[in-house]
Nucleic acid binder design. Structure first.
Length: 327
RNA sequence: GGCCAGGUAGCUCAGUUGGUAGAGCAGCGGACUGAAAAUCCGCGUGUCGGCAGUUCGAUUCUGCCCCUGGCCA
């Protein structure tokens, strides 16, 4: 068992969408020897810039972000791939004598990084198509019934309408020949060799966050989100059920463009979807990840975060907007 | 000013042949292992516009009033 002091530091900056994570991360990046690692399931897509609130080119130039623009919007990413990518890039950053500052709002990715994932088979398009066909013919409750035959434990904890999880559980059984419940039980928690400092950004008042979400979605619309979706659809072969086009904002613009939902409702729907995302992220923070929470609207937030980081990793020598000392 | 149609949950509406009401959306809470910005689950007390009248009982019937929209002047 290694001692905490022997482990290299890593900072985790978690928060719901529109809580000011990026601004805080940039502030810290100006003052600490850190490199930014994105923890964001949407910013991995190339050419999806406006709707994912990706840092602009100048910002990326000044402060390189890792794990952004990794794949085409036609492709899928995953929590498992994130964990592998993050650990690889964290090792490089650490080897350079710098500190990984992970920042983003994809809470499952943080969990996967911190606790590891069981050894499960990768997603398989053919098997998924088979299960989709079964569901189309007989309904998801029939898939649930089938799962109950081969993996009663997993079937018991899944609702018969939870299409995504039912599909995954049955996929695992068909690929591995063993039930998901068994494979999960076999995997033990694998904590990576870092001294993690999990920090959370939350507004004291939810309504403040809602205000910021509306403001930011309007800004995205003004910045040309609709054009961005049009360009994506021209350049790539996309559909509404791809992970990239299920992202908040992109989905609502697409639905308006194709008349699936009234254009007049597009803005509201985008804002609602963003709020609901924020709510899910907050639930993760409160119930699972439990970082040290900082009010994202508090005065001198940067100083507070800086002091906390300095106390943890630099012997408490952060003050007046700068830090002294070495790692 | 007259006629008609409405005024029911934050919004859009349904409904009650008289026994004080329910959907969608929003909101709130929760779950979460290779799609997670995903997927799914749970939560519905609101002077049924106001005041009277009829009635054992009115959101429902009647009258008057107020408000909104449309048509006619």
């Amino acid at each position: 068992m290694e001692h905490k002091e022997t482990l290299p530091p890593a900072i985790l900056l978690m928060g719901p969408t529109a809580s000011g994570k990026t601004a805080a991360a940039l502030w810290l990046a100006e003052r600490f020897p850190v490199e930014l690692v994105s923890v964001d399931s949407a910013q991995v897509f190339r050419d999806m810039d406006i709707g994912t609130a990706k840092p602009d080119a100048a910002t990326q130039q000044a402060f390189p972000h890792h794990l952004i623009d990794l794949i085409s919007p036609e492709e899928s990413y995953s929590a498992a791939r994130f964990r592998a990518d993050a650990l690889a890039v964290m090792a490089k950053i650490t080897a350079r004598g710098r500190i990984p500052l992970l920042v983003g709002g994809t809470m499952l990715y943080y969990k996967a990084l911190l606790e590891g994932l069981a050894e499960l088979p990768q997603a398989n398009p053919e098997i998924r198509a088979e299960i989709d066909a079964l569901a189309a013919a007989h309904g998801w409750p029939a898939v649930h019934a089938e799962l109950a035959r081969v993996d009663p434990a997993t079937a018991a904890r899944l609702h018969s309408t939870d299409a995504q999880r039912l599909q995954r559980a049955l996929e695992i059984y068909r690929l591995a020949g063993r039930p998901m419940s068994e494979l999960l039980a076999a995997g033990e928690s694998q904590k990576p060799p870092y001294a993690f400092l999990p920090l959370g950004l939350l507004p004291a008042d939810r309504s403040v966050l809602h205000g910021r979400i509306a403001q930011r979605f309007d800004a995205m619309l003004h910045a040309g989100l609709e054009d961005e979706v049009s360009r994506l659809r021209r350049k790539y072969s996309l559909s509404l059920d791809l992970p990239s086009m299920r992202c908040v904002g992109y989905r609502q613009v697409w639905e308006a463009q194709d008349g699936i939902a009234p254009r007049a409702e597009m803005r509201d729907r985008g804002i609602y979807a963003t709020r609901q995302l924020a709510k899910r992220q907050i639930t993760w923070l409160a119930n699972t990840l439990k970082p040290e929470i900082f009010d994202c609207l508090a005065p001198k937030l940067g100083d507070r975060l800086g002091q906390r980081i300095a106390r943890e990793f630099f012997g408490g020598s952060f003050s007046a907007g700068g830090f002294q000392g070495k790692i």
